[in-house]
C-alpha cells in the first residue's frame, strides 16, 4: 500500500507537468524583467530570474537548474542583443520548449522591441566582447520599460487568454503608476541634466541618455577585458579637469579601477544598483530608478 503510494507520488513528481497549478511560468534572464513580469502577472504567474542583482548577465553558467526552469517556462523574457549569448543557446537547445523558441509568443527579447543604441560599425574580436546587436542594457530607460510592459501583457493574453482581463487590469494600473513615477523622475533629471560622469563599462548608455548625463570617459576601453594600467593613465588625464562628478559602477563590476581613479582625482565612486536587487533599496522597478536618482543627486551635491 505504502509502496504504491510512494510509486504514485514518484510518478506524479516525474511526469505531471505542473498539473497542480496552471500559473504561467516565466523565466526571466535578468531581475528587471522578472520584476516587470511580477507587476503584470501578479499571482497568475510564477517568475524565476536566471540572475540576481549582484550578477553580470554576460557571464553566468548554463546551470542545471536553468535547464529545468526553461523546460517548464511558457515565457522566456530576456534583454537579448546577445547579452545572454554565453549561456542562453545551451538552454534553448537543451530544455526549452517550442513556445519559448524565437518567433513564438513565449520568446521576448527586449532589445528586439526598443531602439537599440551603440550598434557597432565594425565587428572585430580585438575590440573585445562586443555585441553585434548593439548595447543590450535597455532597461535603464523608463520608456523602454513601458514598451515591454505592454508587449508582455499582449503575450500573456495570447498564452493565457482565460486571464487576459486580469493582465490588462494590472497593465493599466502599472502604466498609471509608472507615468506618475516618470513625471516625478523627470523633474529630478532636469536638475541632473549635463552632469558629467565616468563609467566603468558601457552598460549605462540608456540611463545616461534618459537622464541626459554626459559621459566623460569609460574605464573599460576594450569591452569585457579589464582596463590596462596605460589606459587608466589616459583616462586619468581625460578626467582630471573634466569636472566629472561621479564614477559610476554596477555592483558586479570590479572595484579596483574605479577606486584607483577616485583616489587620484577625488571624484566619488557611486555604485548604482543597475538592476532590481542591485542594492537593498532597489527592491522593484520603481525603487530602482528612485534610488538611482537619489545616488546621482547625492554625488552632484557632494562635490
Amino acid at each position: 500500500m505504502r509502496r504504491t503510494a510512494l510509486a504514485a507520488a514518484l510518478a506524479a513528481a516525474l511526469l505531471s507537468p505542473a498539473m497542480a497549478n496552471a500559473q504561467v511560468r516565466i523565466l526571466a534572464c535578468e531581475p528587471e524583467w522578472a520584476a516587470l513580469a511580477e507587476e503584470i502577472g501578479g499571482e497568475d504567474v510564477v517568475v524565476h530570474s536566471a540572475t540576481h542583482g549582484g550578477q553580470d548577465a554576460h557571464y553566468i553558467r548554463a546551470r542545471p537548474s536553468l535547464i529545468a526552469k526553461v523546460r517548464r517556462a511558457k515565457i522566456l523574457f530576456c534583454s537579448g542583443a546577445d547579452l545572454e549569448v554565453g549561456w542562453l543557446p545551451v538552454l534553448m537547445q537543451r530544455g526549452a520548449g517550442r513556445i519559448v523558441q524565437p518567433g513564438q509568443p513565449g520568446h521576448i527579447m527586449a532589445a528586439d522591441h526598443v531602439e537599440v543604441l551603440e550598434r557597432p560599425e565594425v565587428l572585430d574580436r580585438s575590440l573585445g566582447d562586443i555585441h553585434p546587436g548593439g548595447n543590450p542594457h535597455v532597461h535603464l530607460d523608463p520608456g523602454n520599460i513601458a514598451i515591454l510592459a505592454r508587449l508582455l501583457t499582449e503575450r500573456l493574453e495570447q498564452i493565457d487568454p482565460d486571464r487576459a482581463e486580469a493582465y490588462r487590469q494590472r497593465l493599466a494600473s502599472f502604466q498609471a503608476r509608472w507615468a506618475d513615477a516618470v513625471a516625478g523622475w523627470r523633474e529630478r533629471t532636469e536638475k541632473l541634466r549635463g552632469m558629467k560622469v565616468v563609467v566603468h563599462h558601457k552598460a549605462w548608455v540608456y540611463l545616461l541618455r534618459w537622464a541626459e548625463l554626459e559621459r566623460v570617459a569609460v574605464l573599460e576601453r576594450v569591452s569585457g577585458i579589464p582596463p590596462t594600467a596605460s589606459h587608466l593613465v589616459e583616462v586619468l588625464e581625460l578626467v582630471r579637469n573634466s569636472g566629472a562628478r561621479a564614477i559610476l559602477r554596477a555592483p558586479f563590476e570590479p572595484e579596483d579601477a574605479s577606486e584607483w581613479l577616485s583616489g587620484k582625482t577625488g571624484i566619488p565612486v557611486v555604485e548604482l544598483p543597475f538592476t532590481v536587487g542591485g542594492s537593498p533599496e532597489a527592491g522593484d522597478l520603481f525603487s530602482l530608478f528612485d534610488s538611482t536618482l537619489a545616488l546621482l543627486e547625492e554625488a552632484r551635491d557632494r562635490s
Binding site: 522591441h113 526598443v114 520608456g143 523602454n144 513601458a146 514598451i147 515591454l148 510592459a149 505592454r150 508587449l151 499582449e154 502604466q175 498609471a176 509608472w178 507615468a179 506618475d180 516618470v182 513625471a183 523627470r186 523633474e187
Partner: peptide
C-alpha cells in the same frame, strides 16, 4: 506637475504603440 504626468502617460502610450 499635472501636465508632466499626462505627458509621461502619453510618452508611455506612444512607446506602447511602437511596441505593437
Amino acid at each position: 506637475k499635472d501636465y508632466e504626468k499626462r505627458i509621461a502617460a502619453l510618452e508611455a502610450q506612444l512607446a506602447g504603440m511602437k511596441a505593437r
